[in-house]
Design a protein around this nucleic acid. Sequence first.
RNA 1: UCCGGAGUAGCUCAGCUGGUAGAGCAGGUGGCUGUUAACCACCGGGUCGGGGGUUCGAGUCCCUCCUCCGGAGCCA
Length: 441
Amino acid sequence: MRGRTRIAHLPEHAGQEVTLGGWVTHRRSKGKIAFLVVRDGTGICQLVASVKDVDEETFARMEKVTQESAVLVRGTVREDRRAPGGYEVLVRELEIVGPAEEYPISPKEHGIEFLLDHRHLWLRHRRPWAILRIRHEIVQACRDFFYDNEFVLIDSPILTPAACEGTSTLFETDYFGEKAYLSQSGQLYLEPAAMAFDRVYCFGPTFRAEKSKTRRHLTEFWMIEPEIAWAGLDEVMELAERLVSYVVERVLERRRTELEILERDVSKLESVAPPFPRLSYDEAAEILLRPENVARAKEAGAPPFEPGNDLGAMDETILGELHDRPVMIHRYPTKVKAFYMEPDPENPDRALCVDVIAPEGYGEIIGGSERIHDPELLRRRIEEHNLPEEAFRWYMDVRKFGGVPHGGFGMGIERVVAWICGTRHIRETIPYPRTINRIYP
RNA sequence: UCCGGAGUAGCUCAGCUGGUAGAGCAGGUGGCUGUUAACCACCGGGUCGGGGGUUCGAGUCCCUCCUCCGGAGCCA
C-alpha cells in the first residue's frame, strides 16, 4: 500500500503523521484510554487513543478489535519511554481491514505440538520471527561468502536416479514408471561441476528418510555444499573454518536485536574465529577413553565409546565442550565413512575427512572430505559397498577424464541456525519443519 | 526400531488410598484516563485419547491399541 510507514522506520518520523498497517497482538483498554499493540513484520508499535481525542466509533473499535485483526492506522508518532520500543502512535483514525476470529495462540504458554500444528500462525510471533530472520542472515552470509571467494553456484537436481550413500534412507517416488529418489546430497553432481568451474557450491533442500527422533534431525533440511578442484583435506578444513567464522560474525554484526529476543549468550559466539582446533580421530579417541569422560558418558546413560566406531552424540558433546569454538575432527576410520572418501596415504585405515562439531552440545554441523580421484580405487569402493556400478558411470567419468584431487563439505543450515540462535530443537529453525511424524502444515 | 514420560475445557495444567470435574489464560458482559503477558467483578465452556475389563461405583485400578513428547542409534 502506498504511503505506508513500516514500524522499523518509525523513529525517523517522530512528530509526523503516518499510516501504519499491522496486526493486533495485544489490547489493553482502561476506561477512557485504550492501548493497542500492533506488529507489522518489521517491529512492534503501541497505539494509544484517548476518548477525548478520537470520535466515538474509532474509540469503540480500539476497544473491540480482536487479537490478530489487520488494522490500518493514521496517527502521530511520538517518542515515549513508556512505550515498548520507545515510540508510540497517537491514533486519529483506525480501520479494521481484516477482522480476526478467535485466535488460537494466546499470550500464555503453549505446548510444542500445539504450536507446530499452528506453525502458519506461530510464524507471526516474536521467537520464530527472530530465529527465521537469523536464518535469513545466515543463508545470505553463505551466499556472499561464496560469491566473494569466486565460487560458482551450481544447483543440483532434487529428483535423482540413485543413492549417494546407500538407499535405506531415501524417499522414493515414481518418475514416469521408473523409481526416482529425492536427493540426499548434491555432492555427486558438484564434483563434475568443480572440474568445469574450479570452485562451485550448491544450496538446496535435501531429504532423508531416517527414522531419527532427536532434536538434531529433520527429514527435509537445507544443505550448503562447496566443492573445490585441486583441494586436499587441509584446504577443505580451512574453507570450513573461514565460512563458519564469517557466518557467525555476520549474525553478530547485523542481527543483535534478534539474538537479544532469543536471550542468546553472545559471548559464546564472539570467540568463534580461525583457527579452529583440529583433532585427529585417534586423538579424539584418546580423550574419550580417559576415565573421567568414560564416567561422564556412563552417568548420562550414553553408550560407551568404542575405538574404531563413529562418534556418538555424547562423544561429540564431550569433545565440543573442551573448546570455546567449533572443533574439527579429521581422519575417521575409513570403514565408518562414505565410499568416496580418499584414504590417508600415511594410514589407509583412516579417511581424509573432517567433521566440524559445534560447541555447547549442538553436534555436527559440517561433514566433508577429500574425494577419491583414482578411478580404480573408486570402482573397488563402489563394489565393496554393493552400490550399482551402472548408476555411478557418469560419476566415474570425473576420474576417467582428467581426475584430480578435489574435496568439499556439506553444512546443514538448520543445525547452524540452531547453534547460533541457541535453540534447543532444530524444528524451530526452519519455517515448516518436516519430521518423522509431521508433514503439516 | 529400542528405552523413558504424557494424553482431563480452545490453551497450559491440578485432580491424594476409587465416591460422579477444577484453576489460570483465552472467549463473552460490565467497570476503570498511561497500560506493559494490565487489573477488578460476573458468565458460558468437558464423550477425562479409543476400546475392553474389575467394581454397587472408574479421570483414578488392570489389559490393549493409538497419538504425542524426551532420549538412543543413524546422520548434516
